[in-house]
Amino acid sequence: MIEYENVLTTCPYCGTGCALHLQVLDQKLVGVLPAKNHVISEGGLCIKGWNVHAFVNHPDRLKKPLIRKNGKLEEATWDEALKLVADKLGEIKAQSGPDSIAFLSSAKCTNEENYLLQKFARAVIGTNNIDHCARL
């Protein structure tokens, strides 16, 4: 039994919102095809969009948080990692003020997650230093 499917999705890389089809063969991602009659990308993609399938199952992809201990990165739990980040951010804010901290958000997140991060930056930390990696 051969299972082949084209899954329509939106490119995760930037804010343009190009549509693309992920080619799924036997439950594995094998490639990308542009969506021809989509109103935004009209069948075109940039080099990032064309290679979107490559990062999903890449061996170098981080699946667990890593914390540097004694000069070496070691796997940690999420609780541990979040506590460390919270402690350090609080420490820096207390020492040097909120504007010594900046936030850089990602295009691979959803709008809602990005909204949350800017809310966190402005309301919790108290800084306007927030930017985005996909300001095209």
Binding site: N6, A19, L33, N37
Partner: peptide
């Protein structure tokens, strides 16, 4: 969304 693609 009326967007066509190849299908098996």
């Amino acid at each position: 969304g009326g967007i066509s693609a190849s299908h098996l």
